[in-house]
Amino acid sequence: MAHYEEHHRETFADSALVVNHGIEQPPVVNPKFHRRQRAQYTVDEFVDGILSRNMAILSQAITMVESSREEHQLIAQQIIERCLPYTRNSIRIGITGVPGAGKSTFIEAIGTKVTALGHRLAVLAIDPSSERSKGSILGDKTRMETLVHNPDAFIRPSPSAGSLGGVARKTRESVVLCEAAGYDVIFIETVGVGQSETAVHSMVDLFLLLQISGAGDELQGIKRGIMEMADLIAITKADGANLQKAELAKAQISNALTLFPMPASGWKPRVYTTSSTEGAGLMELWLGIEDFLKHTKVNGYFYSNRARQSKWWMYETVNASLRDSFYNSPVIEPLLAHYEEQILGEEISSFVAANRLLETYFGSR
């Protein structure tokens, strides 16, 4: 059979059995293509670009702030110091909520109304990072399709990178840059980690909690923690068949709040019902935000709170730097695995191991 096919191919050149030699396939990537290097700005160019409200340069400056490279951190610190005189002219609002509360949809809806009132809005959206891969999707922009094209809005997603409290470690520095760029309303959207919101509460003027109806009865609202931090609470998705449930949740949470002591701000937290799809209740909520700001500025809490936050972040920055210096120390790194094995083998207690590591670290400096 094989001999017949060979004879047929030699006799009939146009036979389907003839295998033609192919041509060399072109490369997948154009060999003449050269990746264009992003321009590296100087500190002066960064500062000038931020003050002139160049969103591209602002984004690159925030990237420098978030970078872990030492040379980037040196540049970032100079940018922040130069921008500080142009800050403190905004209101900072922290927004959190249980999963499914519709934080991104809510921010887009109320953000559109805020910019329509003449404000410039910056949204710092914190995306959860994977404990395994350490990566983040950073997909908040995809759920803010209208706001992302708004010329008066700036949206910046950042990874939490394992930071406690649902905010990135460099979020506060990013707030400084956004204020210098002329954004007078800053939204900080957290990952919604429940009752570990101390970090974001320590960098905002007002803490807004988003809730959904049916997430728990009145006793759920009495739980200490995140409920005590909230200045305003919004029951989202209050539309259609869910409207009655949202009103019931509002009444239950309002009753629960009466059991809480008066906060240091002297402000009694309010509860609202909102619908991001229909726009219901959003302006009422914004008026509540303005009432809170007026109230706290009159009694002085607004300014004393910001001073206290600045002091808190000074210590937090020192703690973070010491922690990084400890774990990256060439003296400590080889000892960590050794003490881990001893702890797992129950040869030593974790308390003794920690003290020996600290003694070694401070003794080497």
Rank of each mutant, 00 (worst) to 15 (best):
M1D: 06
H3A: 15
E6K: 15
T11M: 13
T11F: 12
F12S: 01
S15M: 09
A16E: 14
L17Y: 12
I23T: 14
E24I: 15
E24D: 13
P26C: 11
P27L: 08
V29E: 15
Q37W: 02
A39E: 15
D44A: 15
E45N: 07
E45H: 09
D48T: 14
S52F: 02
R53W: 08
A56P: 00
Q60P: 00
T63Q: 00
M64T: 08
V65N: 01
Q73A: 00
L74Y: 10
I75N: 03
P85A: 05
R92K: 14
I93Y: 06
K103W: 11
K103P: 08
S104K: 09
F106Q: 04
E108R: 00
I110V: 15
V114D: 03
V114F: 07
T115G: 02
A122D: 00
A125T: 01
S130T: 06
R132Q: 06
G139D: 15
G139Q: 14
R143V: 08
R143Y: 13
D152E: 12
R156W: 07
S160M: 05
G162I: 04
R169N: 04
T171F: 06
R172P: 02
E173N: 13
A180Q: 05
A181F: 09
I186Q: 03
F187D: 01
V193T: 15
G194F: 10
G194W: 11
E197S: 01
V204C: 11
D205T: 07
L208W: 04
A215Q: 15
Q220Y: 14
Q220E: 09
G221D: 01
R224D: 04
I226E: 01
I226D: 02
E228R: 06
M229R: 04
M229K: 10
A230M: 06
A234I: 12
A241Q: 12
N242F: 09
A246W: 11
A251Y: 07
I253Y: 11
N255F: 06
L257Q: 03
L259R: 09
P261T: 06
S265G: 14
G266F: 12
G266I: 12
P269H: 09
T273D: 04
L282S: 02
M283K: 07
M283Q: 13
E284Y: 03
L287H: 14
G288I: 09
E290Q: 15
E290H: 07
F292S: 03
L293V: 15
K294D: 15
H295T: 11
V298W: 04
S304F: 11
S304A: 07
Q309V: 08
S310D: 14
M314F: 14
Y315C: 02
T317Q: 13
N319P: 00
S321H: 12
R323W: 09
D324L: 10
S325D: 13
F326E: 01
N328H: 15
L335Q: 05
L336M: 12
H338V: 13
E340A: 07
G345L: 09
E346V: 05
E347A: 05
V352F: 08
A354H: 04
R356E: 10
L358D: 02
Y361P: 01
S364V: 10
